[in-house]
Design a binder for these strands. Structure first.
Lengths: 116, 116
DNA sequence: GTATCATATGAATGTAAGTTCATATGAAGG
DNA sequence: CCTTCATATGAACTTACATTCATATGATAC
């Protein structure tokens, strides 16, 4: 894109070799994008303690049931949560322990910056 | 927000006790939002191997220097990368090992889903 | 000083995405 | 059947945000 600049072909060929495929990098971005929303983070955190039905989450977060449903659909399509039917209600729960690890790492980054 | 629904006050009071403050949840969302962009992920991944100047990153990712600069500013304000002057160029590098851990956890989640 | 390279930045633009509203689906009870 | 509760979903609206373009800053060399 840029015109000719100072040379860094040496470093670049090495970095380029070790850079993952675009598809993986894209998938990673998409995954983290899902964690990048306060509502979804709050939903996931809620499910840390207990599985919950949709209206319980809505009540807990003081949000419309519809908004929660939309977000749960996104979380589900990313395989971060799953659900089962129980009569009229749908019970949602964490589908993956990576959710805890990922959020945990983020938490650590934040609290370490705090100390400085 | 919703009208009266079936009762879950019991679970909710417990979950509510263990739910972090809104400010922390918000900060977590903001942090992950930064990882939720392919360009920024690619920049971070590039810096896994070696520190790089702005125009090297731009050349590597085949993007405008301006776009890279804007994203580096965001990464820097989140304390994920840092930079130092070297003559006319600015050399950027990872500021934090959590970057590797966070991306690593995301990577594991993706590859595990792959297997299923 | 001036010229040039490397980078930063502000404004504008286009697009993605979260919430709301209205409504549809689906299950249980009468 | 019909009603009600729980949830899902599509459309519209609004805001956030990534990129581009033009330009400013900053450093080196002459």
């Amino acid at each position: 894109m840029s015109g000719k600049a100072h040379d860094h072909t040496a470093v670049l060929t090495q970095v380029r070799r070790l850079l993952p495929q675009d598809e993986l990098l894209c998938d990673l971005g998409d995954l983290f994008k899902i964690f990048g929303d306060t509502t979804r983070i709050r939903i996931l955190y809620s499910l840390f303690e207990s599985e919950l039905c949709v209206c319980a989450i809505a009540e807990l977060l003081q949000m419309e049931q519809s908004a929660i449903s939309h977000q749960l659909k996104i979380l589900r399509s990313a395989k971060l949560v799953d659900c089962r039917r129980d009569g009229k209600t749908n019970i949602y729960f964490l589908a993956d322990d990576h959710v805890r690890s990922i959020i945990g790492q983020g938490y650590e980054h934040l609290t370490e910056e705090e100390k400085k």
